[in-house]
């Protein structure tokens, strides 16, 4: 089975956001970059599928040279090879442009399954997966928490407001991963050594002529005023309830 996983390099979730000189994106000095946490689920699911039925796992990323490290993390987990679509200003590109670049590269590859994360934790767009599936003209099931394959048939589950959805269909298909799908493995030292030798193919990303969305400016949320400690033990509860009722008016 040929399995593709789209991976993005993102600031880690501990990052304290500082706005950069352009006023539109974050100051990347002192930021620690990691493989997008949702993409770890995609890599893990791909590896489990490969272990079950055989095949090859390819990771794709649209980004600058520095994005190679997220790809190396995926290769160290066990993916076989990488394709990097070179682009410098990837954080200001809209999702349709990213999805188009991925689709343009994927058209010429063979694939049965494509994984994307539910969202990348920088822009929180939550879009590239369903857009990419649409451009490839394959079905997409978003935010899956459980996935089963039987030959070329799949059954996918996802949690939605008020219940659960179960999808069935045939491959090829694209899935976006949600937490709960699996426990991503850690890259072992051996994997890290091997990853250095695995191939990463580089070509230029082919984007649409222009983006549809333009980021005009970035702002930090207003500082919230310091909170009030109502009391140091359970006797403070009646006062809390009074404040919630009379001051905050939420009861």
């Amino acid at each position: 089975m040929n399995i593709l996983v789209c991976v993005k390099q993102v600031p880690d979730t501990e990052t304290k956001v500082k706005i950069g000189d352009d006023g539109k994106s974050i100051d990347e000095a002192d930021v620690n970059f990691v493989l997008n946490p949702y993409d770890e689920f995609g890599v893990e699911e791909a590896l489990q599928l490969k272990e079950a039925v055989g095949g090859e796992v390819t990771v794709l990323s649209v980004g600058p040279e520095s994005a190679t490290s997220a790809m190396r993390t995926s290769l160290a987990m066990g993916a076989d090879k990488g394709v990097r679509l070179n682009a410098e200003d990837v954080r200001l590109k809209d999702s349709f442009s990213i999805a188009t670049a991925l689709a343009n590269a994927i058209q010429s590859l063979e694939y049965d399954v494509v994984f994307c994360g539910k969202k990348a934790v920088d822009g929180d767009n939550h879009q590239v997966g369903p857009m990419l599936a649409t451009l490839l003209d394959i079905p997409c099931v978003s935010t899956v928490t459980s996935l089963e394959f039987d030959g070329a048939s799949f059954t996918a589950f996802r949690d939605v407001e008020g219940g659960k959805e179960t999808y069935t269909g045939e491959l090829p298909a694209l899935f976006t991963t949600d937490k709960g799908l699996n426990e991503p493995r850690y890259a072992a030292l051996k994997g890290i050594m091997q990853a250095k030798k695995k191939p990463i193919d580089v070509s230029d990303a082919e984007f649409p002529a222009e983006d549809s969305l333009v980021v005009e400016s970035m702002e930090l949320p207003p500082e919230s005023p310091p909170g009030k400690i109502v009391g140091e033990d359970a006797d403070a509860v009646p006062e809390l309830v009074r404040l919630l009722k009379e001051e905050a008016k939420v009861l």
């Binding site: 809209d94 999702s95 349709f96 939550h126 879009q127 649409t134 978003s142 935010t143 407001e161 549809s212």
Partner: peptide, 24 residues
């Protein structure tokens, strides 16, 4: 709506129209 249906559907509709999608 930016819920599990809207966030699955809006990007599909947008991609068919060949436009981006402002999310959430």
């Amino acid at each position: 709506p930016a819920d599990s249906m809207g966030q699955d559907l809006a990007p599909v509709v947008a991609a068919k129209l060949e436009v981006g999608n402002g999310s959430d």
